[in-house]
Design a protein around this nucleic acid. Structure first.
Length: 254
DNA sequence: GCGACAG
DNA sequence: ATCTTGTCGC
C-alpha cells in the first residue's frame, strides 16, 4: 500500500475509533463482577490470531471458551482466514476484529449456551493511543465484556518504560500485585499486573468493555496458572497446532 | 540519526 | 505475529 493510501486509511480509522470510543462502558455491568469470588461466572473466552512465517495475509483465527473457575476447555473453534487490512500500530483491531467477531457469531448460532461471559483479548483495551484498542473494539462490536491483556508495554500518553517504571516492576512482590499506568492527563489507563508468583515480568491489563479496571485485573489474575492467563495461553496453543496442521495439509497437496 | 511501534 | 533448542537457574 502506498504512503498516500495508508494515510487516507488511517484518517478514516481514526474517526471510526473516535466514534466507537463513545460506546465503551468502563464500569462493571454484570452480577458476577460484583462478587468477591466471581460466583455466577462460568465461562471465560480467549481469542487470538496466529500466522505462518512468510505470510501475513493468511492466518488462523481461534476462539476458546474455558470453564470458570476450573479453566478447562469447553469449546474451541479454528478457522483459516484471509486478512485484508494491514497491521498498523494503533489500528490492530481493524485487522483482527472481523474474524474474531465471526468466531463469536458462529458460536452464538451453534451453541449459544456456551457463549463466554467475558473475553480475554491478546492486546490492549483503553491502554491505547486513543483509548480504543482491540479489546474495546471487539467489546463494543460484540456487546460482550472484554479485557485487554498485553504482554508488552505500549508507550503511550506519557507512559514510558523508564527507570521509574522498572522500579515499580521490581516492587511487585507476588502474584496479584499491580501498579497503575497513568496517562499524562492523570487518567489511569490500565495496570501492570504480576500475574503469578513465578514470573517477574508483568502483563498489562486494561478495560475493554463492560468491566471496571479493578475487576479486570482481579479476573485476569484469577485466570493465571502461569504468566499468560489461561484463556489466552490455551488459544495460543490451539492456533499454533491448527496453523501448522493447515500448513502441512497445504504442503502435502502440492 | 535514534528509539518506538499491541499483534 | 514469525524465525528457534537447549540450557542455566530457582
Amino acid at each position: 500500500m502506498s504512503a498516500f493510501a495508508e494515510e487516507d486509511v488511517v484518517k478514516r480509522w481514526e474517526s471510526e475509533q473516535a466514534s466507537l470510543r463513545q460506546q465503551v462502558v468502563e464500569e462493571d455491568t454484570e452480577e458476577w463482577q460484583r462478587s468477591l469470588n466471581f460466583s455466577g461466572l462460568e465461562r471465560v473466552g480467549g481469542v487470538d490470531l496466529s500466522f505462518i512465517k512468510g505470510d501475513d495475509v493468511n492466518a488462523c483465527a481461534q476462539l476458546v471458551v474455558l470453564s470458570y473457575p476450573d479453566l478447562e476447555v469447553l469449546y474451541e473453534d479454528s478457522q483459516m482466514v484471509t486478512l485484508t487490512a494491514p497491521y498498523i500500530a494503533g489500528f490492530l483491531a481493524f485487522r483482527e476484529t472481523p474474524c474474531l467477531l465471526d468466531a463469536l457469531q458462529r458460536l452464538e448460532k451453534s451453541q449459544p449456551a456456551l457463549l463466554p461471559q467475558v473475553v480475554l483479548v491478546d492486546g490492549n483495551g483503553l491502554f491505547h493511543y486513543r483509548e480504543f484498542g482491540l479489546a474495546c473494539h471487539l467489546g463494543v462490536l460484540s456487546g460482550l465484556p472484554c479485557v485487554g491483556v498485553a504482554k508488552n508495554l505500549l508507550q503511550v500518553q506519557g507512559v514510558a518504560k523508564d527507570n521509574e517504571h522498572q522500579s515499580q516492576i521490581a516492587a511487585l512482590q507476588k502474584g496479584g500485585d499491580s501498579f497503575p499506568l497513568t496517562a499524562a492527563s492523570g487518567k489511569v489507563l490500565g495496570k501492570a499486573l504480576r500475574s503469578s508468583d513465578s514470573s517477574s515480568k508483568p502483563v498489562y491489563v486494561s478495560v475493554g468493555h463492560k468491566i471496571s479496571l479493578d475487576t479486570a485485573v482481579r479476573l485476569t489474575h484469577s485466570c493465571c496458572r502461569y504468566r499468560v492467563p489461561e484463556p489466552i495461553r490455551q488459544v495460543h496453543k490451539h492456533t499454533h497446532t491448527h496453523t501448522h496442521k493447515q500448513t502441512d495439509a497445504h504442503i502435502k497437496s502440492l
